[in-house]
Design a protein around this nucleic acid. Structure first.
Ligand SMILES: [Mn+2]
Ligand SMILES: [Mn+2]
Ligand SMILES: [Zn+2]
Ligand SMILES: [Zn+2]
Lengths: 141, 141
DNA sequence: TTGCATATTTGTAATGATTACATTTGTATT
DNA sequence: AATACAAATGTAATCATTACAAATATGCAA
């Protein structure tokens, strides 16, 4: 799953975003790493390649991505806004031990709460937390 | 649903928290209002009655409540940590129009994602957003 | 090609929520 | 009352995010 720069550019253009160097790099980071990073994590990594890269650009670009539905925000825990270029319906699991965030497929539509009968639902989010498989086997030794 | 000061005190004692005046007031606020407030909202309201009340006390007390499982954190949106004294399993809906947060009963255990087979799940959160009933009828009316 | 309009990026300062920490106040016990 | 301990307070520090103005890049007309 490593799309070429051309494919990334196409992706941006499809959402009416001009594919600047910075935007390509940021979206490339999101779609290849798939690690639900914070703005700071993206910056720390990309600034190695683009020393002039500003944190403001990271924030501006992510804001643009969110608005154009190219990415979405993940807020499992307070004080850390994370970003995900996978906008398909799926849940997130955060390991309290190692901090990793896992995706998982989930059929959210099964829930159908009666109490939200006449509500217009735009977004559905499912967040779990606990201890991941890796950390469990590590503990057991 | 307006518990007496005695009942609030009992509730605190049951969780091994000494029922100080401030703690009683903060817990009373949470259980009577049931509005998933931010720390600031709690402070703004209670400082009317307790002019000396410090924001630090709000934060310290809420932290204690979380640790003793007397309340839980709700993080629907970034940059606003909210608190809920209802620790039963239920989902939250936030209206993008009026900002209200609604509770809804939901049987989360139906989901059972295969991918989390050998994971230890400690917490499950379900957050929806959209437009609430009231705001829909307001728009139509 | 040059010059201009516009979009994008950058750097710095401001904001706002949360936390750290030292001081003060309250409570219980002797 | 004196002491010890817990809780509350006020202030300063931290940290993520945003605001804003200046610099840079891009696209196009002359
Ligand atoms: Mn994801
Ligand atoms: Mn609730
Ligand atoms: Zn783990
Ligand atoms: Zn509403």
């Amino acid at each position: 799953m490593t799309p070429s720069v051309e494919e990334i550019s196409e992706h941006l253009l499809k959402h009416n975003i001009k594919p600047s160097y910075q935007r390509i790099k940021i979206l490339e980071y999101l779609v290849t790493k798939r690690n639900h990073p914070t703005a700071d994590e993206i910056h720390k990594e990309l600034v190695k390649e683009i020393p002039s890269l500003s944190k403001t650009t990271i924030y501006n670009t992510l804001k643009t991505f969110i608005e154009t539905n190219l990415a979405r925000v993940i807020t499992i825990e307070e004080n850390e806004t994370r970003y995900d270029a996978d906008i398909s319906d799926h849940g997130h699991f955060k390991c309290d031990e190692c901090g990793s965030i896992y995706d998982f497929r989930v059929n959210i539509d099964i829930l159908e709460p009666d109490e939200l009968e006449s509500f217009k639902i735009n977004e559905k989010n499912v967040y779990y937390s606990g201890i991941c498989k890796k950390c469990i086997s590590k503990e057991e030794g």
